[in-house]
Each structure stands twice: as structure tokens, then as C-alpha cells.
Simulated scan of single mutants.
Amino acid sequence: MRQQILESATFLRKQFLRQPEIGLVLGSGLGPLAEELQDAVYIPYGMIPHFKQSTAPDHAGQLVCGQLAGKTVLCMQGRLHGYEGHTPAEIAYPVYVLKELGVRALLLTNASGGINTDFAVGDLMLIEDHINMTGQSPLTGINDDALGTRFPDMTFAYCPELRKTALQVAEQSGVKLQRGVYCGVNGPQFETPAEIRAFRTLGADAVGMSTVFEVIAAAHCGLPLAAVAMITNMAAGVLMKPLSGAEVNEIAEQKGKAFRQFMTAWISSIAF
């Protein structure tokens, strides 16, 4: 995989005007933040050697590199998911490319279902840890020692310094930033009420169909990472109402301005 990563990175370096500093992955309904980048360069995934196409609804499927809050940000406007048929390694692949390009911090976002009954739709949750319920890992198979160790430590997969900065920004700007544990599942079906009760018992505060493979890859290659989930619906059985993907994107759009303001302030406050 190392050779493929180098080929992807070589192609992308020729497209960029500046060296990217921060990587940003935008989840369902959160893509409009990429439109706020200045002097932006847009590169569809299909143009990039060895990248897979994103087919999820409301995922533009392109890299956007530009200026935001005084930083050069390389943004994935839409990510890959297992339910699209992509393997864990394919989903994680862009993380290694971002590291090869010199990105020094990676911020993930996603749309999640709220399990914690103290949460409300529209809340932002700083992910402090995760539970991987997919039964899979992007590191399965022969390890490439050039990328990372065979058995990466996950204790600090969510970088304490980046999390601290996020909490400080939230306090200073008056943003209610919840904290909790994210449960990653395969999807694409929403979870059953019984599954949500089980996840709550395990200690999960929110659930979604992404993120965990990217976090594992970042820990593997030593790329500092933090993540924020937007609670776009309460999970199955919490409110005893049907769930829909349209609702997820609708809430993300309604709460998008506050999300973009918080993310911009967070990016501005990250120091290297």
C-alpha cells in the first residue's frame, strides 16, 4: 500500500497551491463547511490515483484544499463507508495519504444518533473514545512497517491536546459541547431499539456508521486526531419514532451555521 500512497500524494501535491496543515473530514449533511475555504482547489476523488468513489447521499466526494481561519485546510467533502461496499482498508486509505502530504492534525466530523438521554437533537459531542462494533479493522492483513507498528496503541487515539483546545473554544464561544463515547456500526440500516439499549449499557453516548476505521488508521500512522459528532437524531427507541436519512441531513442543515462557526474557531485555535 505504501507505493499507492506515494502515487496518490505525488498527484495531489501538483494540484495544491500550499502545503496542507490540517485535515478535515466532513460527515453527512456537514459538507457546506468546505465551501467556506478561500482560494480553494477542488479535486474529485475519481481523479486521484487509488481513491475510491463516495456514493453516500449528500457526500460530494471531493477533496477541497484552501484557507480557513488562517490555516491551510485539506478537506474531505464526503467520506467512504462500509455500507457502500468499501473495505475498512479502502475507507482508511485517505488518512495515510493526508499524513504523507504533511498534514499535522486531522479533525473528523460525523452525524450521529444520540444514545445518551441527556443529549438533544442538534447538540455537538466531542468524541472522547469509541467502541468498534463493526467487527472489522483496516489493519487486518500483513502490516506495512513503513506506515506504523503491527499493534498500535489506542489509549490516546483521540488526541488529548486537540480535545482540550476544542473544549476551550466551546467555553469561550458559548457553544454547548457535549462529551462522550461513539459507537461505530456497519449500517446502512438504523439500529434496533434493543441494540441501542445494549450500546448504552456498554457505555456509548452516540452511534453512527463511520469514523472508527479512520481513527484506527490515524493511530496506526501517528497522525494526531480529534472528532466531533453532531447529534442529528435520537437513536432508535429513545423517542419511539421512526428514523430516516432525510431527517439526518435536515437537522445537519438547520444546525449547520453553529457547527461551521465552532469548527472554524477550533481550527483557528490549533497551534503546532
Rank of each mutant, 00 (worst) to 15 (best):
A206Y: 00
L167W: 06
V185T: 12
T201D: 08
C221F: 08
A198V: 09
T165S: 08
G208M: 05
F190A: 06
L167E: 13
G174R: 06
A166K: 02
Q189N: 15
T155Q: 11
Q168K: 14
N233D: 14
V185E: 00
A157F: 10
A235E: 03
V181M: 06
A206C: 14
S210W: 04
I231Q: 06
C159E: 12
A204D: 08
M154I: 09
I231D: 09
A235W: 03
A235F: 06
G174P: 05
G184Q: 06
I196W: 01
Q168A: 12
H220M: 10
V215N: 02
R197W: 07
G187P: 06
P188C: 09
F199G: 01
A229W: 01
I196L: 02
V181G: 04
P224K: 01
G174N: 08
T211A: 03
G187H: 02
R200S: 08
C221E: 13
K176N: 12
E191Q: 13
A219P: 05
Q178N: 14
G184F: 04
P188Y: 07
A166V: 09
F213H: 15
V228G: 03
M234N: 05
M234C: 09
G222A: 12
A229C: 15
P188T: 12
L202F: 11
C183R: 08
V207H: 02
G237E: 07
L167K: 13
K164Q: 15
V185L: 13
A229L: 10
V212H: 01
V228E: 02
F190M: 07
I196S: 01
A218C: 08
S173A: 12
